[in-house]
Design a protein around this nucleic acid. Structure first.
Lengths: 213, 213
DNA sequence: TAGATTGTTAATCGATTAACAATC
DNA sequence: TAGATTGTTAATCGATTAACAATC
């Protein structure tokens, strides 16, 4: 029997990848897979797969056979999406990036529901984005008091994020998907932040390209 | 004197963050900073700052004083952007995400130069994106033979990325900034890949939110 | 000088990999 | 049964943190 410990952040980051692979396996009609084979397909090691599966619950692997794809999927689905309730989410900043990113939020396999979008540009307010009317940022407090969103997606320049994030934390937002270059996890260590710094990501790629063997 | 070793990936990933912080410091007229103070502002430890600086070259820290902001910046700039030559880059996929992301490529502080964009949708071909005409994906080989791009940015669905990436590798592309859910680093372990999986990122955020203490 | 801070080595911590008995 | 594969413990590897002599 498995003795699941709390999954560490590196493990958590790998769960969506397992989830995606297992979905394609199920799609291909494969019902069972060994850690060795899964590792080969994902570019990792069998050991790591088994260690990871140990953390996530009762995976019911069978010696000599492997793991049930169906069972793994249902465990991962529960961990990643809970009981199926979507996390009510608001988007702050409806520029080019905000518009692009809003499509990812709304995708039904991510577990989020976009319930509002805000901008400070008068010519954006009132327009639609993914079927939702863009509100003026001044209406943030009133909206949150009524609808209690749990997640905020920040698609703002750094200065805007600095200004707004305090208001969002005060309003009880639990989680941030942050595309700004303002490091929320430093200022608010108690909230859950996923920082997606596109500029930083490009810069590290550049470093590795310029300093290849 | 420093004895710089090769920077590890975790170190490399922190370099852009140092770079950004030091830029704001310089902007504020601050010429010197200690590891302790920098660490406090960045949410890390003084030890880590000093260890990181040990890897990146001759930082010339002065006991009792700290580091020269100017000197650190010039070292980081050289590491991140080389001698200033921009990396010739092509964009594959000009949908919503591609359009949003193209703005980040072109930003002059990232070290890249967007020289072409490709799509397979006939109604996108010929349009402009950031001052560049969108070409049909069929022209990829001819264009690369003539202009030798070094980096490709993939803003495609998974299936498209699987199909195109082999062609790009064959054409000698060295680096990928990959937004698809196709894991290039598994298929092509010898190229430099920065995988930015927005869906995965959202899913891990969801896991952490749903499994908070 | 005295206080502060570096550069660097050593200690700790955590994550990955290896090994292997249990068993399907 | 024999071969394959798990679950789990131990070993290794690497990254972070702590410590401290050197010295500005």
């Amino acid at each position: 029997m498995n003795t699941p410990g709390k999954a560490s952040l590196p493990v958590i980051k790998r769960l969506p990848k397992y989830y995606r692979y297992l979905r394609t396996l199920k799609n291909d009609g494969i019902t069972s897979i060994s850690s060795r084979e899964l590792a080969a397909q994902m570019g990792t090691t069998a050991s790591q797969v088994r260690q990871d599966f140990n953390c996530i619950g009762d995976v019911n692997g069978r010696q000599g056979i492997g793991y049930s794809v169906e069972n793994l999927l249902s465990i991962l689905e529960h961990l990643l999406f809970g009981n199926g309730d979507l996390l009510p989410t608001i988007l702050i900043g409806c520029g080019r990036l905000g518009k692009a990113v809003s499509r990812f939020i709304t995708t039904d396999t991510n577990g989020y529901k976009l319930i509002a979008a805000f901008d400070n540009a008068p010519d954006e307010v009132g327009k639609e984005i993914n079927g939702i009317q863009i509100l003026h940022i001044d209406e943030l407090e009133a909206f949150c008091a009524e609808h209690h969103p749990e997640v905020a997606v920040l698609c703002l320049p750094r200065s805007g994020a600095e200004e707004i994030s305090g208001r969002l934390v005060a309003l009880g937002i639990q989680g941030f998907w942050n595309f700004s270059h303002y490091d929320l996890s430093v200022s608010y260590p108690d909230v859950v932040v996923e920082n997606v710094h596109l500029g930083d990501s490009l810069m590290s790629l550049g470093y590795r390209l310029r300093n290849q063997d």
